[in-house]
Computed example of a mutant assay.
Amino acid sequence: MSQPVSTTGFPTTAVTVAALDPAAVDAPAAAHYGDPLREQRLLATEVGIVDRSHHEVLAVPGEERLSWLHNLTTQHLLELPRGVATETLVLSPHGHVEQHATLLDDAATSWLVTEPGAAAGLLDFLTKMQFLTRVEPREASAEQALLSLLGPAAEQALAGLGVAVPGPPEFTPVPGPKFATGAVPARPTGRYDAQEFPGGGWVWRDRLGLQLLVPRGQLPEVVGALRGAGVAACGIWAYEALRAAARVPRIGLDTDHRTLPMEIDLVAPAVHLEKGCYRGQETVARVHHLGRPPRRLVLLHLDGVTTDELPASGTPVVAGERGVGFVGTAARHYELGPIALAVVRRNVADDAVLRVGDAAAAIDPTVAPGRS
């Protein structure tokens, strides 16, 4: 017997994040559909679709949009080709990360996908920087919705929609300290091939899988077609556990007000180290050329905690009696068990004895996926 579905095409049997943690940033999303560990396995070994439509979207039309965004953010956006997505940051004057967005330009409008609750702050910043520039930034979350299609069979599922499969992500190698002029090509450092949906919408492949940005009115059609082809609906808990294991940070969950891009491995996908001046650029250049950012992003294995006891974002990481960092995203992984992303002091050794609340914690010393 088929499950009843909502107006978006997803089953109505979801356990929402709001029912479990009303204050969570992902509160509007489905936490799971009955078995979060099984849903993780599907995303990792088969295929699943995740509703991430609570993420917010800005639209920036106008003939000067790319040069304007190029000057305001960390990414090289001049002449960004149609059908290429990238990532970019807005920094504070001291180089700390304030905003993150995935940006795709369709030759008429730049679409910026950002965190839940972040669009208002980003729009306020962009509006203040508008001056006489021919751009018209606006809130567009009611127009576009984000879905994620993950798993080895995702390409086959996408092909069933009549959409071409995007190529793999490409990243410009991050040069070492004191690099020579011209070492970084004049193009986005992180490039995600994007393909257009018939009738509107785009799909690109990022570090985690296929990301679909579709008009909200098309959600039932897109989700229904995928579900009809046997693609399982999976909750945000499953997605977040795989994201944490891959050490891909989220701004606001895995950062604090002092976070620098190089501390959380966002230089390769989101920061062009040789472009013109932007807010915070001096700090980025200084820290990169020194080669020693004060902190680093790590994956922790937690010992002796249950799903109900997972530490909240911001929980201190302690070595002996000394605080050495803080936890960001915590999750129960279907293979690794309880894990958490954390930002810790750079001098904390990989074999350090750590605690997070009452739980013992150990740094995973393996190299993060996609990092040399």
Rank of each mutant, 00 (worst) to 15 (best):
H257W: 11
D256L: 09
G230V: 13
G230C: 10
A229Q: 15
Y239I: 10
R258K: 15
G252H: 11
A244Q: 01
T255Q: 12
Y239M: 09
A233D: 04
H257F: 12
A241L: 04
R258Y: 12
E263Y: 11
T255R: 07
L260A: 05
L253W: 02
L253K: 06
A244I: 04
L253F: 08
E240I: 03
V231D: 00
I251E: 06
R243N: 07
Y239K: 00
P261I: 13
P261D: 07
H257M: 11
P261R: 05
Y239A: 09
G252K: 14
H257G: 01
T259I: 12
L260W: 08
E263A: 08
A241R: 05
G252A: 09
H257V: 14
R247N: 05
C234K: 00
W237P: 01
C234Y: 06
R247T: 11
P261T: 14
I236G: 00
W237D: 09
A229C: 07
A246M: 08
G235H: 02
A245R: 10
G252I: 04
V248Q: 04
W237A: 15
D265W: 03
T255P: 14
L260V: 09
A232W: 03
M262F: 03
G230P: 07
W237G: 08
I236H: 06
G252M: 10
R258H: 15
I251R: 05
T259E: 07
A245S: 04
T259R: 10
G252F: 14
L260D: 02
I264Q: 01
R247G: 02
E240T: 09
H257N: 05
I264F: 02
Y239S: 00
L266P: 02
L260H: 07
L242W: 02
E263G: 07
V231W: 00
P249C: 12
I236E: 07
G235Y: 07
A229E: 12
L253N: 03
A229H: 12
A241T: 03
R250N: 10
L253H: 12
R250S: 10
R247Q: 14
W237V: 08
V248I: 15
